[in-house]
Design a protein around this nucleic acid. Sequence first.
DNA 1: CTATTACTCTATAAAATCTATAGACTAATA
DNA 2: TATTAGTCTATAGATTTTATAGAGTAATAG
Lengths: 137, 137
Amino acid sequence: MLSKKTKYGLKALIYIAKHSGTEPVLISEISDRERIPKKFLEAILLDLKKFGILGSKKGKGGGYYLLKDPKEISAATIIRVLDGPLAMLPCVSLNYYEKCDDCPDEAKCNLNKFLAQVRDNTLSLLQQRSLYDLAIL
Amino acid sequence: MLSKKTKYGLKALIYIAKHSGTEPVLISEISDRERIPKKFLEAILLDLKKFGILGSKKGKGGGYYLLKDPKEISAATIIRVLDGPLAMLPCVSLNYYEKCDDCPDEAKCNLNKFLAQVRDNTLSLLQQRSLYDLAIL
DNA sequence: CTATTACTCTATAAAATCTATAGACTAATA
DNA sequence: TATTAGTCTATAGATTTTATAGAGTAATAG
């Protein structure tokens, strides 16, 4: 399951994508409309900024805005940034790989082989869906 | 990510499937061979028993054994029993459905539509893979 | 019938992660 | 220079995860 953080982050990005105009979008607006705790949302948007998905501007007329074309931001990227690995185990993660303590030989591990298939299967869908797709869906 | 509980449970089931003979398989044998903490494994196997996947026998010559043909036990079922919902959010879960507090209209929620696709995509793979497949993979 | 074996049940608890909230601070604009 | 709006640091309650301990119960062998 996705964490609330990730769910909130996805909703916020979709909201920003839908409301991208000349002006940046306010945290408080997103918080109100999407019913996301404001302080929590601040932290989430900051994460998305650190990763280079969002930009921000302070003061009046400020807010958050997308740094890239929504078509260039994949669902896989967003979920990875907010939720961490997509893979079901660290030993099959492409971006957060870690060896299992208990596994003597990964190449012979049936679970590893199976979960690598699951990863490929999930990834193929999440990589081809962009924020643009999510916003118009 | 899957919990260690689920990972251990899957490994244990694969081990039992591979070593199904006339005699049940000992907890301590699985624990030793698969390097799973014994007391933790006891609890996990008990869960799998409560759900009807495993049977057990006490005393000498006792242990755990599969109650069904490994071909009849899907990966989806195992993961649901041990890890809970496969869906990325409760609002798209078939077996553990729960409405979002913050969502005024699920039918109009883009995230809901998208994650329902992800669920179908994952499910189609997990349901067609059986414990038999995992054990021979 | 009793010793041994092996699963069962209840309780407990440390550690990690998740879900926030508070408040002072900084930058931008009018 | 007042107001607006994002930034940063700290903290903290709740929940979940990952176990461990130990007494109890059922089955078998001899």
